[in-house]
């Protein structure tokens, strides 16, 4: 992977939402929803973006798709910059990045039949012409997501949540995308259905060589299908590493806290839990220094003043923490 560029590169992506107020409707404050996020995804790879609600993970997905315009930073698809090109020129490239949304009920137009929902991207990108060819392609998509073919004549409200999510996945597959952004794609489903959809996604990844950006707050699900994980906190990535490293020897105290909150299916398991106190600070007024210092059990003076950069702490392992070791609760501040 030395001279081959990754499928998707995101560099310093920012999205600030202005808040207007006052007598003249001037900008009075900003929500720093995403504040300098960088990562890349290789072809066929799954990168998970995890974090608490409100940390900006969905905003990252929407900014990549240009459903919202990023404030700053760069996004490259196969080396081509896509964050600043006009939307007219972006349209053909949309074929390559698709999205599956969280809510299977609001992500399908209630007044369109499944066949028409799936035909829309095919027609938009000129991938199928004529009724017979479109029907044929739609039927194949139904097979791909393991739905009965005759379901394409029905309306979305006739399906269960899991089935509707399959339709959403089929729509994302329709244009033959290389990258699918799953924005909390399984969070709204029951546990058993969740497992089916996760298995479907990983099967599809193997069959079609898809890359996935899997946005989730659920580390237990992430562990099942991801290659690498990026942990976000308050609009920034605090730790980025492969799955094995993350679950075995994560570095950042926030990641530790998240991991310790994952339920373990063993009632007798003895675990050292990292309990965080307080709430996530407001992204309107992020704390100085390390944005996590208000809740970090290991925070010390430096954290309050100096913002830690994302730095390499191991092979393919980056973390944004001033501490060199955060071993099981013991703090070893590094003299510098």
């Amino acid at each position: 992977m030395s001279n081959m560029r990754p499928l998707l590169e995101v560099a310093g992506l920012k999205k600030h939402f202005p808040i207007y107020g006052g007598m003249f409707g001037t900008e009075t404050a900003r929500v720093y929803a995403v504040d300098g996020v960088s990562f890349d995804i290789a072809k066929g790879e799954t990168l998970s973006l995890v974090g608490e609600s409100g940390c900006g993970k969905s905003t990252v997905g929407k900014a990549i798709l240009r459903l919202i315009e990023p404030t700053g930073g760069e996004v490259y698809l196969d080396g081509q910059r896509i964050d600043n090109i006009p939307l007219v020129r972006l349209r053909p490239l949309r074929q390559r990045i698709q999205v599956v949304f969280q809510d299977p009920f609001s992500s399908l137009n209630p007044r369109m039949r499944v066949r028409d929902i799936l035909a829309e991207p095919l027609i938009n990108f000129g991938l199928a012409h004529g009724r017979a060819e479109i029907d044929d392609r739609v039927a194949k998509l139904m097979d791909t997501v393991r739905l009965p073919r005759d379901a394409m004549r029905r309306f979305p409200h006739e399906f269960s949540g899991g089935q509707r999510q399959r339709i959403g996945i089929a729509r994302a597959l329709a244009p033959g995308a290389d990258l699918i952004i799953c924005d909390e794609a399984v969070s709204a489903l029951d546990v058993s259905v969740k497992a089916q959809i996760v298995n479907l996604l990983s099967d599809l990844q193997d069959e079609l060589g898809l890359a996935l950006l899997f946005i989730s707050h659920d580390l237990a699900i992430v562990e099942h299908l991801t290659h690498r994980v990026a942990v976000m906190y308050l609009g920034k990535i605090v730790e980025l590493t492969d799955r094995r490293t993350l679950f075995a020897k994560s570095h950042h105290p926030y990641t530790r806290a998240l991991l310790s909150a994952v339920p373990v299916p063993d009632p007798d398991a003895v675990r050292s839990r990292v309990i965080l106190t307080g709430d996530v600070p407001s992204p309107i007024n992020p704390p100085s220094g390390c944005s996590f210092h208000t809740r970090c059990p290991f925070a010390y003076d430096r954290c309050r003043i100096e913002e830690p950069e994302l730095r390499t702490v191991g092979e393919g392992h980056q973390s944004a923490c001033h501490l060199d070791h955060v071993p099981g609760g013991q703090v070893v501040p590094v003299p510098r």
Binding site: L65, I97, V99, D103, S107, N109, G168, P175
Partner: peptide, 23 residues
């Protein structure tokens, strides 16, 4: 989300209005 999905599927604005908004 279904309108955002339509945008992501490359649907042009007039068709979005006609098929997703007006109905």
């Amino acid at each position: 989300p279904y309108v955002e999905a339509a945008v992501a599927s490359g649907t042009r604005v007039p068709k979005i209005i006609w098929r997703h908004i007006l109905p």
